[in-house]
Simulated scan of single mutants.
Amino acid sequence: MSEPVATCQATEYEVSILPEGDINQQVFVITVQYRGVGQWAVTRHGSCLGVNGTWADGVKPYDRGDDWLADHRFDLDTALALARKAAPHVVVNGHTAADAYRRTHPEEPNR
């Protein structure tokens, strides 16, 4: 009997308007995580982004009904689009990712 073939699958993406190597990039990152069956979640520090663009804080697995899941799980393209749209607006210590970008990349045109 032959050995089964190993499969590989990407399960997480990091989304940020700050480029890799930027000193502030990791604190402003949004994560798109695979949740199974073709569904992805947009997360940041335990919060989950909904289809309406608002973050649900601290929702526990037992509090998630079908309606909640329908609003917070997406196909990959939709999840990445929502994360990209939210990325400039991530706030850390009162400053947005867009503020941090302008501070560390003043010579580059605004994105």
Score class of each variant (00 low, 15 high):
11 T>V: 14
39 Q>H: 05
106 P>E: 06
44 R>I: 07
37 V>N: 10
98 A>Q: 07
31 T>C: 07
79 A>R: 08
64 R>I: 12
70 A>R: 15
104 T>E: 13
92 V>C: 02
6 A>H: 07
47 S>G: 11
96 T>I: 01
2 S>M: 08
44 R>V: 09
99 D>L: 02
67 D>G: 12
68 W>A: 09
37 V>A: 12
100 A>T: 01
74 F>L: 10
105 H>W: 12
69 L>H: 05
16 S>G: 06
82 L>V: 08
17 I>M: 03
66 D>W: 08
72 H>Q: 03
62 Y>D: 15
44 R>G: 09
59 V>Q: 08
80 L>F: 04
104 T>N: 15
21 G>N: 10
64 R>T: 06
102 R>Y: 05
105 H>G: 13
53 G>L: 13
13 Y>G: 11
30 I>S: 01
7 T>F: 06
39 Q>R: 14
84 R>A: 07
64 R>L: 12
10 A>V: 15
47 S>C: 10
69 L>K: 14
98 A>F: 03
108 E>F: 09
75 D>H: 07
73 R>V: 02
21 G>D: 09
111 R>H: 08
87 A>M: 00
11 T>W: 04
95 H>Q: 05
29 V>H: 04
86 A>Q: 11
25 Q>F: 03
33 Q>N: 10
24 N>D: 14
22 D>L: 08
91 V>K: 04
56 A>F: 08
100 A>Q: 05
16 S>F: 02
41 A>Q: 15
1 M>G: 13
66 D>C: 12
11 T>S: 11
83 A>G: 06
4 P>A: 14
53 G>Y: 09
31 T>K: 13
111 R>P: 07
53 G>V: 12
2 S>T: 12
